[in-house]
Design a protein around this nucleic acid. Structure first.
Length: 666
DNA sequence: AGCTGCGGGAACC
DNA sequence: GGTTCCCGCAGCT
């Protein structure tokens, strides 16, 4: 697919506006690269030959929705399957499987035992409410020259496993021996997909099984009721959200919002993170278009590397302290999750592997709380570097600066590091490490860090902490002021101490924020306390970056956006370059969206983090060595692996979310 | 069995 | 009347 306009060009020619609903859409000469995980209010234009676009594919589980417009296909997000107990996988990640599109199949999924063999939870759907309380919607429109895509809303939940993973799991069949799956996955990896294997064991016990339940909430906010005045398909609610994270991914890091609005003294990224990005990551990635089905071509295991089976035999938790080059970073890391030991192993390129594995093997995870740099994830092969519109890899500024204030109020969900911080704070929750639940840690959590965590949680709004959709829902995208009061009240019930009918309080878990990141936890989960101690450091490191960011991206607003390029009066399609620019998309006037800055700052930004979530799963490996698998055991791991890609994109968005982000004008 | 697209219908404004 | 979402159906893989 051809590249889009260069960043500079984009800036000069701000996003020409077009709407999927327009009678005449512009005739695009350049197309956006395929983006599997489009999030936020974005618009993209794909070439007619883009297979993914033609299939209306998406990493998100999107179901068809009738919009009574045959020319425009509408799809809405089904959310993600999560563990009812919000358990943390041995690797630190969380369960987030892909909901079946088919209602029937989806119903079957719900209530199944959590894939985490050490967890007694059940799978339940965490529905998407990213669009003012309703599921995020995707619109597809085909024209003679291009395929137009428009998304509304910001996913307020972790990314589900990749579709390919879900399919693989399905094909393997529940209840099969894990090894079968491992083999399948291994083959996949060899093909450039991913290598995964997992070990299934019998579930420890069958506690009282919770009746299958759905987290599906009733529409909280009538699509129409809320005061958002955004026109159809142009709602900008929550648009800021993804911008930060995605923005990063682009060559032009146009970072808007948080940085601009909040001065901050708290480093958003840890310093160690920076180096890794700049140095470790060369971003010299192959010109590769993100593709749903195409996982980063990580190398398959070779004789020099430990075989999956061998890896699983390790008794000691592994601790990664390694760096990898940019190319490796670009790939999804093959990982192995040993549920038994709770260890996640990453496959590294051989030249690096040796050292990596040596270290890996020699360290004890129990004491590794600090072993992993805050920005380790940046070093993971799975990170896909950003590519410029032309498909060339561009060094992605890792410097995403966010002040403390921002961290608390305007948390960028997209920021992996941010996420990481948060997550670490919550690792003690339901951690099943080495087969044991760390009760003591939980206690600590409540006694020492819980409150703290919340305050530090990105996007956390102290004023409304209880009103967050769900503890698991990291993002609260509901506009405070503009969503209908009535709708909003639904959430406020929680504020009043009311229990969410759908999700009975399970304190202490109840208030826990959903953590998507599995990276940091993988190696640190064993020591919850240490995590907390790290924070100060992290904060300090962020500072420099924040400053830089502000300087560089201080001027986000682009007045030019006012020009409305497309449909020309004569009815002919206006030719325009695809909107790949990372630049924020501003509406000509403020009147289109009434969300207040406060809302955006405090809530929307969180959404951008979502992508990160997926990471949790990402580096987990399944242990191939063991045998019978409970039907569900497999997919957790699989899903986790899948998330790799997701995470990748989220962290360092493989797909330029830049497409066309709408940024609220204030 | 599950995905996808289509269309009817209800609810809301 | 317009828009949204829910649901079922049928074709396809």
């Amino acid at each position: 697919m051809s590249a889009t306009v260069a960043g500079n060009q984009q800036q000069q020619h701000p996003h020409q506006e077009w709407d999927i609903n327009d009678s005449n859409v512009p005739r695009v000469v350049e197309y956006d690269p395929w983006c599997e995980w489009a999030d936020g209010h974005v618009r993209r234009v794909y070439g007619p030959d883009c297979e993914e676009a033609r299939r209306h594919a998406s990493g998100w589980a999107m179901r068809n929705t009738n919009n009574h417009n045959v020319s425009i296909l509408k799809k809405s997000c089904l959310g993600v399957l999560v563990c009812s107990q919000e358990c943390i996988l041995p690797g630190g990640g969380r369960v987030h499987l892909r909901p079946a599109i088919c209602d029937k199949a989806r119903k079957k999924q719900q209530g199944k035992p959590c894939p985490n063999r050490q967890c007694t939870g059940r799978l339940e759907i965490l529905s998407c409410r990213g669009h003012c309380g309703y599921p995020v919607t995707h619109f597809w429109r085909h024209t003679e020259h291009a395929i137009f895509f428009q998304a509304k809303g910001q996913h307020d939940h972790p990314r589900p496993e990749a579709k390919s993973t879900s399919e693989a799991r399905r094909s393997v069949g529940a209840g099969r021996r894990v090894r079968g799956l491992a083999v399948l996955l291994a083959n996949e990896a060899a093909l450039g997909s991913k290598l995964m294997s997992l070990r299934g064991t019998k579930r420890p016990n069958s506690e009282a099984i919770e009746p299958p339940r759905t987290t599906q909430p009733p529409p909280l906010i009538p699509d129409k009721g809320y005061s958002c005045s955004c026109p159809p398909f142009e709602c900008m609610c929550g648009l800021q959200t993804n911008a930060p994270a995605y923005q990063q991914s682009h060559h032009h890091q146009t970072t808007m919002y948080p940085q601009q609005t909040a001065p901050n003294d708290t480093p958003y990224w840890l310093q160690d993170t920076v180096p890794s990005q700049d140095n470790a990551l060369g971003y010299n990635l192959p010109n590769q278009v993100p593709h749903e089905a195409s996982y980063p071509d990580f190398p398959s295991f070779t004789g020099e590397l430990l075989q999956p089976e061998e890896i699983f035999q390790l008794d000691q938790p592994l601790r990664p302290e390694f760096t990898m080059n940019s190319q490796e970073v670009a790939r999804s890391p093959p990982t192995l999750l040993d549920l038994g030991s709770g260890t996640i192993k990453y496959e590294m390129k051989q030249h690096q592997d040796q050292g990596y594995w040596n270290q890996f093997l020699s360290e004890d995870s129990s004491s590794s709380h600090l072993s992993m740099p805050q920005d380790d994830r940046l070093q993971f092969p799975s990170f896909e570097t950003d590519k410029d519109s032309n498909g060339f890899c561009v060094k992605r500024p890792v410097n995403h600066f966010v002040s403390n204030k921002e961290v608390n109020q305007n948390h960028h969900l997209n920021n992996p590091l941010n996420f990481q911080d948060y997550q670490r704070q919550h690792q003690s929750h339901k951690s099943f490490v080495d087969g044991l639940v760390k009760n003591d840690q939980e206690a600590n959590y409540w006694a020492q860090s819980h409150q703290d965590d919340r305050l530090n949680f990105p996007g956390f709004d102290p004023r409304k902490e209880e009103d967050l959709l769900s503890p698991r829902r990291d993002v609260n995208c509901f506009p405070k002021e503009n969503c209908q009061p009535g709708s909003y009240n639904v959430y406020s019930k929680k504020e009043n101490g009311m229990v969410d009918p759908v999700r009975p309080s399970r304190s202490p878990m109840e208030n826990k924020h959903y953590s998507y990141d599995g990276y940091s936890q993988m190696f640190e989960q064993s020591d919850g306390k240490s995590q907390l101690t790290n924070r100060p450091n992290q904060a300090t490191n962020r500072m420099v970056l924040d400053e830089r960011l502000q300087n560089n991206y201080g001027r986000e607003t682009n007045p030019d956006s006012t020009e409305r390029l497309f449909p020309d009066s004569n009815g002919m399609e206006a030719t325009m370059p695809a909107q790949n620019s990372p630049e924020p998309f501003f509406y000509p006037s403020n009147d289109r969206c009434h969300y207040t800055c406060e809302v955006l700052d405090t809530r929307l930004p969180q959404m951008s983090m979502n992508p990160t979530v997926a990471q949790s799963a990402m580096n987990n490996y399944g242990d191939v060595s063991e045998l019978d698998l409970p039907p569900f055991v497999d997919y957790t791991l699989v899903g986790m692996l899948c998330s790799t890609e997701e995470d990748t994109s989220s962290l360092l968005p493989g797909c330029p979310q830049n497409g066309q982000n709408y940024v609220p004008h204030h």
